[in-house]
């Protein structure tokens, strides 16, 4: 599966468009990590636990998008976009979407 965030797959011809595919995941923060993070809020610096958590969840959203594209019979997704929104207090939604296509 080839993913790009431009309108084409460089060096390959697009044969067919399948339409929008998407994947999302909603993650809540761990209480223990939240306490640690609030301590880190005093000293400043990177919150590596959150960085890991968010990139892991983003990967999951991407995987779901890829699964959907595979079910359609696509072999590439173009124009992939990510977005993050906070749904409830302490929970964030990570969302990935793109256009499934078939390339040669």
């Amino acid at each position: 599966m080839i993913l790009t965030n431009i309108e084409q797959v460089p060096g390959r011809k697009i044969l067919q468009h399948y339409g929008l595919v998407q994947g999302n995941t909603i993650r809540a923060k761990h209480v223990g990590k939240d306490i640690l993070a609030s301590i880190k809020n005093i000293f400043g610096g990177e919150l590596s636990a959150y960085t890991e958590l968010l990139s892991e969840s983003r990967k999951e959203a991407t995987d779901r998008m890829i699964q959907q594209a595979e079910a359609m019979g696509a072999n590439a997704i173009v124009n992939v976009r990510y977005s993050t929104s906070s749904v409830a207090q302490g929970a964030a939604e990570l969302y990935a979407y793109g256009t499934a296509i078939r390339v040669e």
Binding site: T4, G11, A37, N41, G45, L47
Partner: peptide, 28 residues
């Protein structure tokens, strides 16, 4: 968004990303 025109070589593409969560200190 336009890839450079390279004819002699085969071009492959992949999505890459980098993320960071950073926090401000209490004083600031």
């Amino acid at each position: 968004k336009t890839p450079p025109a390279i004819n002699q070589y085969e071009v492959n593409s992949a999505l890459v990303s980098g993320s960071v969560v950073i926090s401000i200190d209490f004083f600031k």
